Simulated assay, not measured.
Amino acid sequence: MPYGSCEELPAPVRDNLPRHAQEIYRKAFNSAWEQYRDADDRRGEDSREAVAHKVAWAAVKAVYEKNDAGDWVEK
């Protein structure tokens, strides 16, 4: 279930991340969705969707971090 736009992202992503971070999340999720299509390509028992979400959050955290106020800001 790749995301066609940021408006399709889960509410916690849309409601908390700045637009640029949402784009990073969407692109990383969609890429991981394709990359980890086969269960043999995934570690552990995580579903394809769970792996794609983990990859997407890791991609966001490589560029963004939470500040003291709890807002996501660019590093």
Rank of each mutant, 00 (worst) to 15 (best):
residue 43 R to Q: 14
residue 35 Q to L: 12
residue 7 E to A: 10
residue 55 V to K: 08
residue 57 W to M: 13
residue 23 E to S: 15
residue 51 V to G: 00
residue 54 K to N: 13
residue 55 V to D: 06
residue 64 Y to I: 03
residue 40 D to M: 14
residue 73 V to T: 05
residue 51 V to F: 00
residue 69 A to D: 04
residue 10 P to L: 04
residue 2 P to L: 05
residue 38 D to T: 07
residue 23 E to Y: 06
residue 19 R to C: 05
residue 12 P to Q: 14
residue 23 E to A: 13
residue 27 K to Q: 15
residue 40 D to F: 14
residue 40 D to T: 13
residue 27 K to G: 13
residue 51 V to M: 09
residue 9 L to N: 04
residue 69 A to L: 03
residue 57 W to V: 03
residue 67 N to G: 02
residue 10 P to K: 11
residue 30 N to I: 01
residue 46 D to R: 12
residue 68 D to C: 08
residue 5 S to D: 11
residue 54 K to Q: 13
residue 72 W to I: 01
residue 50 A to V: 02
residue 75 K to V: 03
residue 63 V to D: 08
residue 34 E to N: 14
residue 10 P to D: 02
residue 5 S to T: 12
residue 74 E to D: 09
residue 41 D to W: 12
residue 41 D to V: 10
residue 57 W to H: 12
residue 67 N to V: 04
residue 11 A to M: 11
residue 43 R to A: 13
residue 6 C to D: 10
residue 9 L to P: 02
residue 57 W to T: 04
residue 58 A to G: 11
residue 56 A to P: 02
residue 62 A to R: 15
residue 8 E to S: 11
residue 23 E to K: 15
residue 44 G to N: 07
residue 22 Q to N: 04
residue 53 H to C: 09
residue 35 Q to S: 14
residue 48 R to D: 02
residue 69 A to P: 00
residue 56 A to G: 05
residue 74 E to A: 07
residue 39 A to Y: 10
residue 35 Q to M: 14
residue 45 E to C: 08
residue 36 Y to A: 04
residue 57 W to D: 04
residue 42 R to A: 00
residue 14 R to F: 02
residue 63 V to T: 06
residue 30 N to F: 03
residue 37 R to S: 09
residue 56 A to N: 06
residue 27 K to T: 15
residue 23 E to L: 14
residue 49 E to H: 08
residue 9 L to S: 03
residue 66 K to C: 00
residue 52 A to T: 01
residue 64 Y to M: 10
residue 70 G to Q: 09
residue 74 E to K: 14
residue 29 F to A: 02
residue 60 V to R: 03
residue 19 R to L: 13
residue 29 F to W: 09
residue 67 N to R: 10
residue 51 V to C: 04
residue 33 W to D: 15
residue 58 A to C: 11
residue 6 C to F: 00
